[in-house]
Amino acid sequence: MLAFLRLHGQRLRLFLHSYGRSLLALFFGLLFPLLAFVAIAAEVYEQDPFSFERPFMFAVHAQAAPPLDRLAASLAAFGNTPGMLPVTLILAACLYRMRPRLTYFLMLSLAGSVVFHAVLKKVFDRPRPTLWTPIAPEADFSFPSGHAMFAASLVSALVVLLWPTRWRWAALVLGVGYVLTMMWSRVYSGVHYPTDVLAGALVGLIWVMALDRLLQGHRLLASPPQSESR
C-alpha cells in the first residue's frame, strides 16, 4: 500500500511539475473569466440592475478634472476600431519580419474581438447610461465595452507572444495598466457601466486564450516550419 502511494505520489508531483503552470493558465486565463462573464451576462440579459454601479460611477465622476477629461477623450478616440487599426497594422508588420505566424495570431485576436463585439451588442442591446453628459457620446449599445475588449485582446495577444522572452513581465504589467486605464476612461466618460467594461475585458481575454489553446499555444506559432530552419 505504501509503495502504491509513493509511486502515484511521485507521478502526481511529476504531472504538476510538468503541467501545473498550464493548468493554472487554463483556469485563470479561460475558465474563471468565462464563468465570471456568464454570471454578469445573465444578469444583464435579464435586465437586473447591479446596485453598486450607479454609486461607483458617481464616485468616479466626482474626480472629474480637465486633464482627466482630455485623457478620457484621447482614449475614446484611440481605443475604438478605427483608432486601433493603425496600431495593429504596425505591430503586425513588425511581427511579420520576425515570424509570419506571429502576425496571423495577432490579427486573428483582434479580428475575433471585432466580431464578438458586434454580435454581443446586438444580443444584449443594453442602453447606454444617462447619468451625465458624456465626454465622447456613443450611438450604439452599451454591453459589452468594445474599447475594453479591444484593449484586453491586444494586451493578451502580446503577452502570449512575448511570454517565452524576457519581456513577458514588462508586457504583463504595462498591459494590465493599459487595460485598467481604458476601463476607467469608459466609466469616467459616462458611456459605460462598470459591468460593461469588465465584461468587455473578460471577453477579450477569453477569446485570445481560447485561440491560443486552439492553435496549440504560442510555441507552435513561434516555431518555424522545417523548411524555414534549413
Rank of each mutant, 00 (worst) to 15 (best):
S145H: 03
G175S: 01
W184D: 08
H17Q: 00
F32I: 06
I90Y: 13
A39Q: 05
P225H: 12
H218K: 09
A65P: 11
N80E: 13
V38W: 14
T81K: 14
L26A: 07
V44C: 03
L75A: 12
A152K: 02
L23R: 02
T181L: 15
S109D: 04
W169F: 15
H61A: 15
R101L: 14
A72L: 02
F143V: 00
P127G: 01
L91Y: 12
P224Q: 10
L85Q: 08
A171L: 08
W207K: 05
A151G: 03
A77E: 10
L24D: 09
F124R: 00
L89E: 10
V208R: 04
R230V: 14
S109I: 08
S113V: 00
F50I: 07
T165R: 05
M182A: 08
A39T: 04
A199P: 02
L71V: 14
A25T: 04
V159T: 09
V179D: 01
S22L: 07
R128I: 05
R70V: 13
Q63T: 13
S229V: 15
M57I: 09
G29H: 01
G177E: 08
A3K: 15
L158P: 04
R128H: 01
F105Q: 05
L158K: 06
F4A: 14
H8S: 13
P67G: 02
L34D: 06
V187K: 00
F27Y: 10
L120C: 02
Q47A: 15
G200F: 00
D196W: 00
F32R: 01
E138N: 02
N80G: 07
F78L: 13
K122I: 12
A64S: 12
L221F: 07
L202Y: 06
F4R: 15
L34Y: 00
M57G: 06
P137T: 00
R166V: 07
S18R: 11
A73L: 11
T165I: 03
S22C: 06
S145P: 02
R230C: 11
P127H: 02
P134K: 06
Y104F: 14
A171D: 03
D69H: 09
Y19R: 10
S51G: 05
A77Q: 09
F58V: 07
M183F: 02
F141I: 08
R21Y: 13
L23Q: 11
T195H: 06
G217F: 11
